[in-house]
Design a protein around this nucleic acid. Structure first.
Lengths: 358, 358
DNA sequence: CAGTATTTGTTCGTATGTATA
DNA sequence: ATATACATACGAACAAATACT
């Protein structure tokens, strides 16, 4: 190893461990020469290297000082925001909430999409590893219910001190904070609302490839158990993202599996709407024959399908984004340790036409 | 001036002026020593400085080479995208189109919002001036119909070689390319469609504070002239962004000014929808008493107001974003000169319930 | 305030090691 | 194998800015 590298290591170590604090003067070149038994040229080479990195700043006639943290933070004013894809009704508000909060605190936002594929996620994470101007990441997990092949990359980012906050869901393998809705609690409230309306046999249609589906399933189960309703796995329907795009095809099976149910809890309003449309086309009435409840309180829920407005649980949208941005900024400012930045929203059901009181 | 600075200047000049091309070997350290009559340390110091900047790369045992352009571009792989605000129906698709195209070419997207205020625009432009990792900007103008106080900042950016492409509209003061819909042509087609349906007295409701309103007004005028319809300025209604948020209040005046019209061309579907709602509430029938045509082909147009689907001109949304991203990349790659990167989309009217055939 | 010591900035010279052509 | 060219390292000197007495 080169001799100057030893000086670099020594300085790095002392700065890291707090023996040399920001603004403090490091030993003079001649002192370092004696300490290491090296020539001044070599010492100067080491100092030059660290100065290039911005860790040290020399003042002629005075000395060499450890850079202010502040000066370093000024350069790292970008927060990367990575989401899966763009939907029309939640994404715009959330992203707007994130951006307005970030920009009011002097940060700019870099936005990427994973298209919900781990390949693209990998590419984005590798890019983040190479960049040194990104202070933090707000990340929406990719297929968070399935084992993720990019966990090692997250660990690398964490080792480099990158602040990471998950949005909407989280990877159980990583001990990192998240900001999301409390999917379990929301699902619980939705199903409980159906039970309180007098329904005994309640099915569900959930998404299987993200953690939100998993959590909502847990909430469904808790409500069913607590309300002492009989639970049959026959009434549990799992669909995935592709099914949602295909639409009716995938929902054909669903109708059969809801046989005997008087109510169904749907993953979101989009699924609820598609289901209602299918039921109506087959001559069944909502809520007469089947009560339906969704999530997100989208425009579709308000307008309704076939004139039947959909009961739903509101999504905090803009507030979710603001909270996520606030928390990533807190994490960035607090060096090393920070309080728990996890936050979960839970809203109450908005009852509309699609649920029948028995 | 330090002697090593002379070497740096000489090298910079030769690289700038193309005498030393990317990939080429610069004179060896010893050659430079002789050329400048300086010691090898001094020459090495100069080379080290430039290597830190990424302009030179030394290979032990071989020589020092001018960095590939490619290696330099690798660092400037951020495209800033600045839009006014987030709406629910055009923005998501457009931004998604931009991001997917940028990311497929190895660029990442930094997104900011001006909230349609010149103050925020100024702040963003100043930030861009300080940053040196941004290769290009896709910019949606702020209130593009009014004189812009930030033109000087745009000139500064241009002087620094920043590639700038405008989206949706443009500043007439600046000779810069834009990607947008052809507002003039689209408005022309919409109004012509009304004329071809037999309408003689056609009004309009347009937005006054952006260039799109101005262009659509020109299209309205051209259609009226070409179809030899009588034009009265009484039938021209100007509203601004705040009116749209206020909703009905501002449209009260509009109804009076449309007196005598049998059809009206609206700035977009949102305005068309609000107008239709107001007319319906006052007992007037669409299209019986008044035919309405909008723009953007939003969900609202498809679903309709009071069961009346709105005729509209489609917005290319995702394609607009893709085109903008493609063109900014073209501009970035072509050093200095580039072909005209301006592109305008023009779509055909989609006729629905809201226009009556006379 | 002046003078001196300290500290970094610049430049010269020299030497050895190591990768490449 | 040799010459070339970069990488690392040491020694020395003076200049310029700062700090201290």
């Amino acid at each position: 190893m080169a001799k100057y590298q030893k000086i670099i290591d020594w300085l790095n170590k002392n700065i890291d461990e707090g023996r040399l604090r920001p603004g403090e003067k490091i030993p003079s070149e001649n002192e370092l020469c004696e300490m290491f038994g090296l020539s001044r040229q070599t010492v100067r080479h080491a100092i030059a290297k660290l100065s290039e990195e911005g860790l040290l700043e020399s003042v002629r006639g005075s000395g060499t000082y450890v850079s202010d943290q502040h000066a370093e933070e000024g350069k790292k004013s970008v927060v990367a925001v990575v989401t899966t894809y763009v939907d029309d009704y939640i994404f715009p508000s959330t992203i707007s909430g994130i951006e307005s909060t970030l920009s009011s605190k002097g940060y700019s936002m870099q936005l990427s999409f994973t298209n919900n594929t781990t390949g693209k996620e990998k590419q984005i994470l590798e890019d983040l590893l190479e960049r040194n101007d990104v202070a933090g990441v707000i990340m929406e997990p990719v297929k968070s219910a399935l084992p993720n092949p990019n966990i090692a990359l997250y660990h690398k980012l964490m080792e480099r001190g990158m602040k990471i906050l998950f949005l909407n869901s989280y990877y159980p393998e990583l001990d990192l904070p998240h900001v999301s809705i409390n999917d379990e609690e929301c699902a619980y409230r939705a199903v409980k609302a159906l039970a309180e309306a007098g329904h005994k046999s309640i099915g569900c249609v959930l998404k299987l490839d993200d953690g939100q589906g998993r959590e909502r399933y847990r909430g469904y189960l808790r409500a069913m158990t607590e309300c002492k309703l009989s639970f049959t796995y026959d009434h549990v329907n799992w669909i995935d993202t592709i099914d949602i795009k295909d639409g009716k095809k995938a929902l054909g099976r669903v109708k059969e599996r809801l046989n005997g149910c008087t109510a169904v809890f749907c993953y979101n309003d989009l699924v609820a709407g598609m289901l209602m449309q299918m039921l109506q086309e087959e001559g069944l009435k909502v809520p007469g024959d089947m009560s339906v409840i969704g999530m997100d309180d989208s425009d579709m829920a308000k307008v309704g399908v076939g004139g039947v407005a959909i009961s739903s649980i509101p999504h905090p949208k803009a507030r979710l984004g603001e909270k996520a941005a606030q928390n990533i900024i807190r994490m960035i400012h607090s060096s090393g340790q920070f309080g728990n930045a996890t936050f979960e929203f839970a809203e109450d059901v908005i009852m509309r036409d699609s649920v029948r009181q028995i």
